[in-house]
Amino acid sequence: MVSSIYSQITYGHFLVLAGVLFGIGLAGVILRRNALIVMMSIELMLNAANMTILTFARMHGDMRGHALAFIVIAVAAAEAAVGLAIVVAVYRARGHADVDRLSTLRH
């Protein structure tokens, strides 16, 4: 019999999945240089957070978690919009969207 960790899905599975997704998103933010990839990784992290919220909502039987996740999605959308606008503006000004090269806040 396959061990129950694989056949019996628990809340922990979902939480760990969210954690892994979060970690991958964070790795993407840290390791990639292109601003757009960074933004996408941020979206990944937000999704991981959403997953966590929904898992706990299911755990506690509280619908308010769903509402919170909904709000999170909306705010993520807004943030993506503004962030992409900034990336566009930076690309226009600098000619590149390389995060590592945008270092004028050095001093």
Binding site: D100, S103, T104
Partner: peptide, 13 residues
């Protein structure tokens, strides 16, 4: 502090 956000984030982690 070299202005790169990546570095700051990495240090944060």
């Amino acid at each position: 502090q070299n202005g790169q956000v990546h570095r700051y984030l990495g240090l944060l982690v």
